[in-house]
């Protein structure tokens, strides 16, 4: 009888233990928050996780803007017809009150568009100096085999130019901070000056102190 009671108690304890362990097995969310890292701890995280560390412009905002703009561009009539137009990236202006590396946003858009195989990109204004320096070195230094030097005057001009801006509206009231971002991107036909495509991505973030 005593043995039976002991067995019953042991089984009950095992079940309770298993259930309480399971209760602790909540599925973690794919997000990054300051509470996720203990003091003094260093850990690797998911680069694609939703970043909730602060209400400032963050990795999730950059990734979602780049993705939305790329997918919208891929559906535009200019790109869909399969002629792989040549694009160049002009300035993306930062009109917000915080520091945002807009070049990083445009580079993400460029990488994703190139990877899709739908377009080609030519050197933009920032990259032009490096490009011309290389051509001049090959053609004027006398160091290179003439057969292998790349000829001057063969660079391709862009058909379309991407340009944009990011703006923000920040409101604060009773400890609540509301940040609204709007990223606008447009594609201009360089020859005709026509606006071929334009889209916007809006983001709202709120935090409370």
């Amino acid at each position: 009888m005593k043995t039976m009671n002991l067995m019953n108690t042991t089984i009950t304890l095992l079940i309770v233990g298993a259930l309480s362990t399971l209760a602790g097995c909540q599925t973690a969310s794919p997000n990054v928050a300051s509470s996720d890292v203990a003091s003094g701890e260093v850990k690797y995280g998911d680069a694609k996780a939703v970043e909730n560390v602060s209400n400032q412009f963050g990795s999730t905002d950059l990734q979602s803007i780049a993705e939305t703009m790329t997918r919208s561009l891929l559906q535009s009539g200019v790109i869909v017809n399969g002629n792989r137009p040549r694009l160049t990236v002009a300035e993306v202006k930062n009109k917000t009150s915080e520091y945002i590396d807009t070049g990083s946003i445009s580079k993400s858009i460029r990488s994703q568009l190139l990877k899709s195989g739908a377009v080609r990109f030519v050197a933009n204004i920032d990259e032009m100096q490096t490009q011309t320096d290389e051509l001049i070195r090959q053609n004027q230094s006398g160091l290179y085999d003439k057969k292998s030097t790349k000829k001057l005057g063969k660079m391709k001009g862009a058909d379309l130019r991407l340009e944009g801006e990011i703006t923000s509206i920040v409101k604060k009231h009773s400890g609540l901070t509301d940040v609204y971002y709007k990223f606008s991107l447009a594609m201009v036909n360089i020859e005709s000056g026509e606006l071929e495509w334009a889209d916007e991505k809006e983001i709202r973030k709120q935090s409370r102190r």
């Binding site: 794919p30 997000n31 694609k48 999730t60 979602s64 790329t70 891929l74 899709s116």
Partner: peptide, 25 residues
Amino acid sequence: DDEAWKVTELIGYQKQAIQTVAPTP
């Protein structure tokens, strides 16, 4: 590649349609 996670909020009984397009053929 893995896409970035997106977050959205749905108020009570809301239906929200989202559209996307594949990044590659």
